[in-house]
Protein backbone atom coordinates (compact mmCIF):
# COMPACT_ATOMS: atom_id res chain seq x y z
CA UNK A 1 0.00 0.00 0.00
CA UNK A 2 1.24 3.48 -0.87
CA UNK A 3 0.48 6.03 1.84
CA UNK A 4 0.95 9.78 1.68
CA UNK A 5 0.26 11.91 4.78
CA UNK A 6 0.94 15.62 4.71
CA UNK A 7 0.15 18.39 7.21
CA UNK A 8 0.79 21.72 5.55
CA UNK A 9 -0.14 25.40 5.46
CA UNK A 10 -0.24 25.67 1.68
CA UNK A 11 -3.18 24.79 -0.54
CA UNK A 12 -3.27 21.35 -2.20
CA UNK A 13 -4.10 20.35 -5.75
CA UNK A 14 -6.88 17.72 -5.68
CA UNK A 15 -6.48 16.93 -9.39
CA UNK A 16 -2.79 16.15 -8.98
CA UNK A 17 -3.44 14.03 -5.89
CA UNK A 18 -6.23 12.06 -7.58
CA UNK A 19 -4.02 11.51 -10.63
CA UNK A 20 -1.22 10.24 -8.40
CA UNK A 21 -3.55 7.76 -6.69
CA UNK A 22 -4.59 6.38 -10.07
CA UNK A 23 -1.08 5.58 -11.22
CA UNK A 24 0.34 3.79 -8.15
CA UNK A 25 -0.44 0.41 -9.65
CA UNK A 26 -2.07 -1.12 -12.73
CA UNK A 27 -4.44 -2.89 -10.35
CA UNK A 28 -6.21 0.39 -9.53
CA UNK A 29 -9.77 0.33 -10.82
CA UNK A 30 -11.32 2.99 -8.57
CA UNK A 31 -10.21 6.24 -6.96
CA UNK A 32 -12.47 8.06 -4.52
CA UNK A 33 -11.78 11.37 -2.83
CA UNK A 34 -13.23 13.70 -0.25
CA UNK A 35 -12.46 17.40 0.04
CA UNK A 36 -13.51 19.32 3.14
CA UNK A 37 -14.01 23.10 2.92
CA UNK A 38 -14.15 25.75 5.63
CA UNK A 39 -17.79 26.69 6.31
CA UNK A 40 -18.77 30.29 7.01
CA UNK A 41 -21.37 29.23 9.54
CA UNK A 42 -20.52 26.82 12.28
CA UNK A 43 -21.82 26.92 15.83
CA UNK A 44 -22.21 30.66 15.48
CA UNK A 45 -23.00 32.69 12.39
CA UNK A 46 -20.52 34.97 10.72
CA UNK A 47 -17.24 33.10 10.80
CA UNK A 48 -14.64 35.35 9.21
CA UNK A 49 -11.72 32.97 9.53
CA UNK A 50 -10.25 29.94 11.16
CA UNK A 51 -6.95 29.07 12.75
CA UNK A 52 -5.84 25.45 12.91
CA UNK A 53 -3.17 24.03 15.14
CA UNK A 54 -2.02 20.44 15.54
CA UNK A 55 0.31 18.16 17.48
CA UNK A 56 3.27 17.62 15.14
CA UNK A 57 4.28 13.98 15.03
CA UNK A 58 1.23 12.61 16.79
CA UNK A 59 -1.12 13.88 14.08
CA UNK A 60 0.75 11.95 11.40
CA UNK A 61 0.85 8.82 13.59
CA UNK A 62 -2.91 8.97 14.25
CA UNK A 63 -3.68 9.39 10.55
CA UNK A 64 -1.35 6.48 9.67
CA UNK A 65 -3.18 4.33 12.22
CA UNK A 66 -6.60 5.24 10.77
CA UNK A 67 -5.41 4.41 7.23
CA UNK A 68 -3.99 1.12 8.49
CA UNK A 69 -7.36 0.24 10.07
CA UNK A 70 -9.19 1.07 6.84
CA UNK A 71 -6.78 -1.13 4.89
CA UNK A 72 -7.54 -4.03 7.21
CA UNK A 73 -11.28 -3.72 6.52
CA UNK A 74 -11.18 -3.03 2.79
CA UNK A 75 -8.79 -3.52 -0.07
CA UNK A 76 -6.68 -0.34 -0.29
CA UNK A 77 -3.90 0.03 -2.84
CA UNK A 78 -3.07 3.64 -1.94
CA UNK A 79 -4.30 6.36 0.41
CA UNK A 80 -3.51 10.05 0.63
CA UNK A 81 -4.47 12.40 3.46
CA UNK A 82 -3.57 16.08 3.33
CA UNK A 83 -4.67 18.42 6.12
CA UNK A 84 -4.01 22.14 6.23
CA UNK A 85 -2.98 24.12 9.30
CA UNK A 86 -2.64 27.83 10.09
CA UNK A 87 -4.97 30.60 8.97
CA UNK A 88 -7.86 29.71 6.66
CA UNK A 89 -10.98 31.54 5.45
CA UNK A 90 -14.46 30.29 4.46
CA UNK A 91 -14.49 28.16 1.29
CA UNK A 92 -10.80 27.28 1.63
CA UNK A 93 -10.10 23.59 1.09
CA UNK A 94 -8.98 22.24 4.46
CA UNK A 95 -8.67 18.47 4.07
CA UNK A 96 -8.17 15.95 1.26
CA UNK A 97 -8.71 12.22 1.59
CA UNK A 98 -8.15 9.98 -1.41
CA UNK A 99 -8.22 6.20 -1.73
CA UNK A 100 -7.27 3.93 -4.63
CA UNK A 101 -8.57 0.39 -4.81
CA UNK A 102 -9.43 -2.31 -7.33
CA UNK A 103 -13.16 -1.76 -6.89
CA UNK A 104 -15.36 1.21 -6.05
CA UNK A 105 -16.99 -0.31 -2.96
CA UNK A 106 -13.69 -0.62 -1.13
CA UNK A 107 -12.57 2.83 -2.27
CA UNK A 108 -15.82 4.53 -1.15
CA UNK A 109 -15.97 2.79 2.23
CA UNK A 110 -12.29 3.29 3.08
CA UNK A 111 -12.43 6.99 2.15
CA UNK A 112 -15.47 7.57 4.36
CA UNK A 113 -13.94 5.61 7.24
CA UNK A 114 -10.75 7.66 7.09
CA UNK A 115 -12.49 11.06 7.14
CA UNK A 116 -14.92 9.94 9.86
CA UNK A 117 -12.10 8.92 12.20
CA UNK A 118 -9.84 11.79 11.20
CA UNK A 119 -12.51 14.09 12.64
CA UNK A 120 -12.58 12.31 16.00
CA UNK A 121 -8.97 11.09 16.45
CA UNK A 122 -6.47 13.21 14.49
CA UNK A 123 -4.93 15.86 16.75
CA UNK A 124 -6.12 19.09 15.13
CA UNK A 125 -7.89 21.99 16.84
CA UNK A 126 -9.85 24.78 15.17
CA UNK A 127 -10.24 28.29 16.49
CA UNK A 128 -12.90 30.41 14.83
CA UNK A 129 -12.77 34.14 14.37
CA UNK A 130 -16.24 35.72 14.58
CA UNK A 131 -17.61 39.23 15.04
CA UNK A 132 -18.04 38.50 18.73
CA UNK A 133 -14.47 37.27 19.24
CA UNK A 134 -12.34 34.17 18.83
CA UNK A 135 -13.46 30.82 20.13
CA UNK A 136 -12.16 27.24 20.11
CA UNK A 137 -14.56 24.81 18.47
CA UNK A 138 -15.91 21.88 20.42
CA UNK A 139 -16.35 18.36 19.03
CA UNK A 140 -19.71 17.74 17.39
CA UNK A 141 -21.68 14.88 18.90
CA UNK A 142 -22.82 13.94 15.40
CA UNK A 143 -19.17 13.39 14.36
CA UNK A 144 -18.57 11.15 17.36
CA UNK A 145 -21.77 9.20 16.58
CA UNK A 146 -20.83 8.80 12.92
CA UNK A 147 -17.41 7.39 13.76
CA UNK A 148 -18.90 5.11 16.42
CA UNK A 149 -21.16 3.49 13.80
CA UNK A 150 -18.09 1.92 12.17
CA UNK A 151 -17.05 0.17 15.37
CA UNK A 152 -20.52 -0.77 16.66
CA UNK A 153 -21.12 -2.97 13.65
CA UNK A 154 -23.99 -0.89 12.29
CA UNK A 155 -21.88 -0.11 9.21
Amino acid sequence: MTTIIRVQAQVFDPGAEIHQLGVVSRQVGAVTSFIGLVRDINEQAGVSGLYLEHYPGMTEKQIALIIHEAAQRWQVLAATVIHRIGALVPADPIVFVGVASQHRGDAFHACEYIIDFLKTRATFWKKEQTQTGDRWLTTRDSDVDTAAQWTSGSR
Binding site: H83, K119, T138
Partner: peptide, 9 residues
Protein backbone atom coordinates in the same frame (compact mmCIF):
# COMPACT_ATOMS: atom_id res chain seq x y z
CA UNK B 1 0.50 15.96 26.20
CA UNK B 2 -2.85 17.29 27.42
CA UNK B 3 -5.44 18.52 24.97
CA UNK B 4 -9.17 19.07 24.45
CA UNK B 5 -11.25 16.86 22.11
CA UNK B 6 -10.02 17.24 18.54
CA UNK B 7 -11.83 19.34 15.94
CA UNK B 8 -10.03 18.82 12.63
CA UNK B 9 -11.34 17.78 9.24
Amino acid sequence: AFFPPVTGG
